[in-house]
């Protein structure tokens, strides 16, 4: 009888500790709360400046791209639609790199060596790791992938939506198509 009570108490404690750990902030097992997308990431707003270190050693700073249309793509190696559309961004950069900048941001969780994964491809755009929620939240959230953000030469957000984009849509959004 005592053994049964002990087991039941242990089960209850396990449940209570797990629930407390994953739901309450301030402990190592907490999963982080959802933040409202930062002001400035919606269409028509001016996106706040940001700087991020890329895997190729370069630093991408949004304000340094003024005068060019900037396309930021939030993606991940484990996201099939993301992987399938990466060639479109590469093609966009190769064909219109004189007036368009592209940045690919790999969102959490990082489940493999992204640099090694990219080595199997010959993409020309810089890739950064989101490294937490801050950059993804600034761009509108990394909860739903892929997400594409298009910023005009003067820093205004022209497009910010989750979901795959094809090459024709990218051309249209960046002013290179009909």
């Amino acid at each position: 009888m005592n053994k049964r009570i002990l087991v039941r108490c242990a089960a209850l404690v396990l449940l209570a500790v797990t629930a407390a750990a994953v739901n309450l902030p301030g402990n190592p097992l907490y999963g982080g709360s959802r933040k409202t997308a930062a002001t400035g990431s919606s269409v028509g707003e001016i996106l706040p400046d940001f700087s991020v270190s890329c895997l190729d050693g370069s630093i991408f700073t949004l304000s340094e791209q003024r005068g060019e249309t900037v396309v930021v793509n939030l993606w991940a190696t484990w996201c099939a639609p993301c992987v399938k559309e990466l060639p479109h961004f590469d093609r966009l950069l190769r064909e219109h790199g004189d007036d368009t900048a592209v940045l690919a941001v790999h969102c959490d969780p990082v489940t493999e060596d992204v640099e090694a994964w990219l080595a199997g491809y010959d993409y020309g755009f810089p890739v950064a790791l989101a490294g937490g929620r801050a950059l993804a939240d600034l761009l509108g959230g990394g909860d739903v992938l892929p997400r594409t953000v298009v910023i005009s030469p003067d820093g205004t957000v022209l497009y910010n939506a989750a979901g795959s984009v094809d090459y024709e849509t990218l051309l249209r959004l960046t002013g290179h198509g009909e």
Binding site: A11, T18, V22, L29, Y30, G31, D143
Partner: peptide, 25 residues
Amino acid sequence: VYAAVLYNAHIRGFAEGTIYRGPLK
């Protein structure tokens, strides 16, 4: 029932509309 509740203890996920991203995942 216990297993179902234990596997799904991140109840704030329903309130926030997002998934748990902590180390237990």
